[in-house]
Amino acid sequence: MATNTFTACEKVIDYDLQESEKKIVIDANIVKDKNINTVSITKSAYFNESNTFEVINNALVIVSDNENNIDTLTYVGDGKYQTSKIIGKEGNTYKLYVKVNNQVFESNCTMPKQVNFDSLFIQDFGGFAGYVPVPARLDPKGFSNYYRFKVSKNDKPFSNIFVQDDELIDGNKVTQPLIGVDYDFKNGDICEVEMLCIAKDVCKYWFELSQNAGGGPGGGTAAPSNPTSNISGGCLGYFSAHTSEIKSIIFIK
C-alpha cells in the first residue's frame, strides 16, 4: 500500500540465489466429466536457468478410484501422462501413485459436489481496482465447500490465485469480485472465469501458494514457504479432483 502512495523506483539487480536440490513437481488433475485426465511430472529449476523445465518421461503413474477402475497412465510427451479410463465423478475418491526411479509419491483426493456457477458480470471498483469480473453462486448451506477461480482475458490466463473456503459464506448468495489483478479491460475483450469446486487440502495448497505472492516489507508474507502438498513423498505440486464450470462475458464499458 505504501508503495502506491509514494513514488518508488524499481530496478533489476544481480542477486546470488543458492542452487538448491531440484525436486520432482507433480501437477495432477481429475476433472469432472472430462474424457482425458492428465498428470504432469517435471523438475524444478535453479532460479537463473530458463523457464523450460526438465520433464520426467520414465515415471510409472497409476490412478484408481473407489469404483475399482484402475489405469496406468500413458506418456504422451512434454512430461504429460494421460488416462481416458478414469472419469471424474462427484463424490468419488481417487488415488494417485507415481514412481520416478526409486522415489514413490502417493495421494488421494475426493471430488466435492458441484456448486452451480450462476452468473458472471463485470463491475467497476473505481480507483481502487478498476473493472473486475464478479462470479455469482449460491453456497449450499451446511456443507463445507471450497472454491477456486481461474480468470483469462482473450484466452490469456492470469496467474493470480483465487481460492475461498465457505467458513464466512456458508449458505449465502455469493458475489465475489476477483480483485488483485490489473485486468485493464478494453471494449470487446472476452473475459472467461472458470469456477472449480475443490477439496479442502487442495484449497489449503492454493491458499498457501497465494500467500507467497508479493514479498518484502509492506506486502506478502514475511516467511514464504512451499505450500503443504497433499502428495506424500517429498515433491512439489498437488493432486486435485475437482469440478469445473466456465462462463465468459464480453466487456463493454
Binding site: 540465489l17 538448491s20 525436486k23 513437481v25 501437477d27 524444478s44 512439489l236 505440486g237
Partner: peptide
C-alpha cells in the same frame, strides 16, 4: 526468505 528455485504448476 528468498526462493532458491522455481517450478511450474
Amino acid at each position: 526468505t528468498f526462493p532458491s528455485g522455481k517450478y511450474n504448476v
